[in-house]
Design a protein around this nucleic acid. Structure first.
Length: 271
DNA sequence: ATTCTCACCTGCGGGC
DNA sequence: TGCCCGCAGGTGAGAA
């Protein structure tokens, strides 16, 4: 489910409220992608200092160490003073004196991992190869263009890989490429300066707008208060195969790239 | 090194 | 109604 906008909306929904909280208990349900990596009782009494985001990971800084939380494909977090009894798909819960943080994740591709810091081996394995933050000043056109030049893959695949720029998943890759009028199958290294510039701007715009709209709620995503997102209503190609393009009227097409669906307008997005 | 495919897991909708 | 198939917002591991 969650790409950068959904993760950022999630983060904003509880970061301030949980900052300074004291951990009373940490409980895990069925296994997630990786084991927690620490005896949960060890964390009792620690403070939650702040909540950051790196790509699609949430970094919850504790007095000692940090929790890495990833929402996978179907994860969502809730945070409230109290929550109803956990359901069968609730697999992580952090009880604090400020409220309860709970992960709901039916498919369990998500993860909650404790590491000592960002230099811990597991943290380096998961975060070390991540590209730049698209909404930060580090995401510059020159560096982006240089990175694209090194890849013979289709541009959509390069965006999804996250080695150049993080946070762009299956929805926003299709949307950004549509706005930049670039065919998703175009070879990254072959994109000219004008297209690279348009794509750079489109990525920032699409992700920024999506954050403002509360993310996309296709099936079950919701923010930490359970609120739905609305970007899906603004999507111009994602999930719209067979419908007319809002710009030119041509029929939106669907193709498979790396076993993922890609949506594009065959007229607006030139090969 | 780069690129591609598979695997992980559950639920849902469509076709028979 | 029930069963089987394909599909779903991610990404590390292993193979080629």
């Amino acid at each position: 489910m969650p790409e950068l906008p959904e993760v950022e909306v999630t983060r904003r929904g509880f970061a301030d409220a949980i900052a300074g909280a004291r951990i009373g208990a940490l409980t895990m349900g069925k296994p997630l992608r990786w084991p927690l990596g620490v005896e949960s009782a060890v964390l009792v009494g620690e403070r939650v200092l702040r909540v950051r985001r790196r790509g699609k990971y949430l970094l919850v800084d504790l007095s000692t160490g940090m929790l890495l939380i990833h929402l996978g494909m179907s994860g969502s977090l809730r945070f409230a003073p109290a929550l109803p009894a956990p359901g069968v798909h609730d697999h992580f819960e952090l009880q604090t004196d400020r409220g309860v943080l709970r992960l709901h994740d039916p498919r369990r591709f998500g993860a909650v991992i404790w590491v000592q810091g960002e230099d811990a081996p597991l943290a380096r394995k998961l975060l070390g190869h991540l590209g730049v933050e698209p909404l930060s000043g580090d995401f510059d056109v020159v560096g982006f263009a240089a990175g694209l030049k090194t890849s013979r893959q289709a541009i959509k695949q390069v965006l999804l890989a996250g080695h150049l720029v993080v946070g762009v998943g299956n929805i926003y890759a299709s949307e950004a490429l549509f706005r930049a009028r670039i065919r998703p199958t175009a070879m990254a290294a072959r994109l000219g300066p004008a297209r690279v510039r348009r794509l750079h701007a489109a990525i920032r715009e699409v992700l920024g707008e999506a954050v403002e709209l509360g993310g996309s709620t296709l099936r079950d995503f919701s923010g930490v208060q359970g609120q739905a997102g609305h970007f899906q209503l603004a999507a111009q190609v994602y999930g719209r195969a067979g419908q007319p393009c809002g710009v030119c009227g041509a029929t939106i097409r669907l193709l498979r790239q790396g076993q993922r669906s890609t949506f594009f307008c065959p007229r607006c997005q030139h090969p």
